[in-house]
């Protein structure tokens, strides 16, 4: 199996000018074909170029003040998360998206996809054709399902692990 056999189509993009509020609204409206919510989207500018990727992790990170660390966040107060979210609300997608987008070739084997995801700490990989155009996304969940299927088949004959 190759990346192109597992990828899902990309139907919608975020734009760099969107506020966090607009971005989360868009993300929440979209469901993947099997009904699961989406946890990351590509960002495309008005010229049609993909300029970044935004995941729910990036949105959480944008809400956390830069000075916090586990040494200090033990002293945060009850509604600090809400207060800091309000403060971050008018940040733009362009400010917080990850500009370095790791992509994978359509003909790449799944092992390469899995390796790239784990080593680079990403949960989705845009799939590119020979000309570098993005033609879909491979999600970590879908690779996991394949691994899980193999694991359960390779278990005991009576079906237990």
């Amino acid at each position: 199996m190759k990346a192109k056999d597992l990828m899902s189509p990309v139907t919608q993009y975020l734009t760099p000018e969107m506020t966090l509020c607009e971005a989360v609204t868009t993300m929440r409206e979209i469901k993947r074909s099997h009904g699961l919510p989406i946890k990351g989207m590509l960002v495309k500018n008005e010229r049609g170029t993909v300029v970044g990727i935004l995941s729910i992790k990036d949105i959480l990170a944008a809400v956390i003040p830069s000075y916090l660390s586990p040494d200090i966040s033990i002293f945060s107060w009850e509604n600090m998360l809400e207060e800091m979210t309000a403060r971050a609300a008018d940040k733009q997608v362009a400010d917080i998206m990850v500009k370095k987008v790791f992509t994978i070739d359509a003909d790449a084997p799944l092992m390469e996809c899995a390796d790239l995801m784990i080593k680079k700490g990403v949960q989705r990989l845009p799939v590119t054709d020979g000309d570098g155009n993005i033609i879909g996304i491979v999600y970590i969940r879908d690779i996991f399902d394949i691994v899980a299927d193999y694991l359960s088949k390779g278990g005991q004959k009576d079906g237990t692990c």
């Binding site: 003040p65 000075y67 200090i72």
Partner: peptide, 11 residues
Amino acid sequence: LAPVTLLIADA
């Protein structure tokens, strides 16, 4: 000290 200062100022 600066990180704690920023936290306290926010608080």
